[in-house]
């Protein structure tokens, strides 16, 4: 016949279960922090020199959407800020014509880690990296 657990075993089991719950809740909190943290990303639209030494010009006019948020309108040598929530993001860059109508749209993925401490990115550079 199976013996009933002792009082000591029951208390230890309770402590263990409580510890597991606390650890899980802390883990959930850390995960929420990581996924929900919103960063202010500085978006610039400047000419730059590529790795091959070629000079690339800035985009004439562009609209930048980060994760489907409200667009940031950028002219040549212009800068603005956009919100990016979480670690990995999708940026959609729309190149605008004279009437500010999108001529071509490209999307590119980036992570907060690759932006450095200042959280700056050059839209013109990412336009080249982006897929049509």
């Amino acid at each position: 016949m199976k013996q009933l657990p002792s009082r000591r075993q029951v208390i230890l089991k309770h402590i263990l279960v409580n510890c597991v719950i606390i650890v899980l809740l802390i883990g959930l909190g850390v995960w929420c922090y990581d996924q929900g943290k919103t960063y202010k990303v500085i978006l610039g639209n400047y000419a730059f020199t590529g790795q091959d030494g070629t000079e690339y010009p800035a985009l004439e006019a562009a609209e930048v959407f980060i994760d489907g948020n409200d667009p940031v309108f950028l002219l040549e040598d212009d800068s603005g800020t956009g919100d990016a929530t979480g670690r990995r993001h999708t940026m959609v860059i729309a190149l605008l014509d004279e009437n500010d109508k999108p001529m071509e749209t490209r999307s590119v993925q980036f992570s907060i880690a690759e932006l450095g401490e200042k959280l700056e990115l050059n839209v013109a550079e990412y336009w080249l990296k982006a897929k049509k």
Binding site: L28, G29, C32, Y33, Q35, G36, K37, T38, Y39, D83
Partner: peptide, 21 residues
């Protein structure tokens, strides 16, 4: 706290609830 840390969306609400608990 979540306003200070700039945590958005449902993640922010969940984190606020976890801090409040």
């Amino acid at each position: 706290f979540i306003s200070d840390w700039n945590i958005s969306g449902l993640y922010g609400m969940t984190l606020a609830a976890l801090i409040a608990t």
